[in-house]
């Protein structure tokens, strides 16, 4: 009954017309039988019906607009995968609303599957013993894709992902990077409007990562595919995502663009100066600037809201001869580590 009410509620709610994914007050509890320790513990575990409830997702709200490239981040166990699994129809929410391209995923799992592509970096969805070419043919038949459209899409993916060298090799013989490329082609072949990626670049070398990022970027830019990316590789995020949602403990802790995340959590910039041969560091004498003197360079940390960069550089140049000056922007990697650490997660 409550499920029905929630459904009616979702229909009546005025929603963002651009939104393609709507998540509100989403909760997922996992119930596990309580394990009883001690004598005959196994037997008592079976007999008693007691269970432990763990809340993996604890009231999440967000809307994703069509064409967005979203980074969905958080430490292990934060509830990332659980949210993705609810959006893809794998898991049924305990409560809350979820709508993907107008469909409630768990209620109409198969219809939802037509609108989404899913790639799990560690688990292939291809037919292990068959060549990639045949896997793509099977998918074409399973989704009843028009043959001409199928051919055009396959040609495009072969070109864009450079599948040709291994197109006729059984999937079990492919390298990890080749396999992930094959999985991406398989996921995008039915032209889903939304692509969900769970750690797509995990374990790949730099070249393979670049190729995959290039593909995702082209897909999002040219075809307008909405992408939701879960990853621990923050280079992926910096290169691809315009928006980030950070979650921890099953709750959203940040939702916004990459730049604001950096400025919100790391106010400081660093000015790195290299002194000319024989010049000794004499300090700048501006309050609020933290100096750390290394062998080759001096780093000055400052808050750009308080101190003008030009003012700082002028002060340095007044007393020193330099060979190089650089302003270092905070890296997302450090920012996220800092956020995790401050919340006691890392």
């Amino acid at each position: 009954m409550t499920g029905l009410m929630a459904y009616v509620g979702a229909r009546l709610e005025v929603v963002d017309p651009l939104g393609i994914i709507h998540v509100s007050e989403l909760v997922k509890d996992f119930r596990r039988p309580k394990r009883i320790k001690g004598a005959l513990g196994g037997l008592r575990t079976l007999v008693t019906r007691e269970s432990v409830i763990k809340r993996a997702v604890d009231g999440i709200d967000f809307t994703v607009d069509e064409g967005e490239f979203l980074g969905y981040l958080g430490p292990n166990g934060a509830g990332k995968s659980t949210t993705i699994k609810m959006m893809t129809g794998i898991l049924q929410p305990t409560s809350g609303k979820i709508e993907v391209a107008g469909i409630v995923p768990w209620r109409e799992r198969q219809r939802n599957a037509l609108n989404i592509g899913v790639v799990f970096g560690q688990k292939s969805q291809l037919w292990w013993d068959l060549p990639l070419r045949e896997s793509l043919q099977i998918i074409g038949k399973l989704y009843a894709i028009d043959p001409a459209r199928h051919r055009a899409n396959v040609d495009w993916f072969v070109e864009l992902l450079d599948l040709d060298p291994f197109f006729d090799t059984p999937v079990r013989q492919l390298s990890l990077g080749q396999r992930v490329r094959g999985d991406l082609a398989a996921a995008m072949l039915p032209e889903p409007r939304i692509l969900f990626l769970d750690e797509p670049t995990i374990g790949l070398d730099v070249v393979a990562k670049e190729r995959i990022r290039g593909f995702l970027s082209a897909l999002n830019r040219e075809a307008g595919t909405t992408v939701v990316l879960t990853t621990h590789d923050l280079d992926d995020v910096e290169r691809l995502c315009r928006r980030i949602i950070l979650i921890d403990g099953g709750k959203v802790t940040y939702d916004g663009d990459v730049e604001s995340l950096k400025s919100r959590f790391v106010q400081q910039r660093r000015l790195v100066v290299k002194l000319a041969a024989g010049v000794e560091w004499r300090g700048v004498g501006i309050p609020g600037v933290a100096e750390s003197i290394g062998d080759e360079a001096v780093e000055l940390a400052f808050d750009p809201a308080e101190i003008q960069v030009s003012e700082l550089i002028t002060a340095v140049l007044a007393d020193h001869q330099l060979t190089d000056v650089a302003i270092v922007e905070p890296e997302l990697e450090n920012v996220v580590h800092r956020i995790y650490a401050s919340a006691g997660m890392a």
Partner: peptide
């Protein structure tokens, strides 16, 4: 150089087929 197929991604290319048809497709693959 192959370019993006016209209208790619505008709407999903797939549709649902009857259960027995998907069964046969999957059986063929197996």
């Amino acid at each position: 150089m192959t370019t993006e197929p016209r209208d790619f991604g505008r709407e999903p290319a797939g549709r649902l087929i009857p259960w027995w048809r998907s069964y046969l497709v999957l059986l063929g693959a197996a």
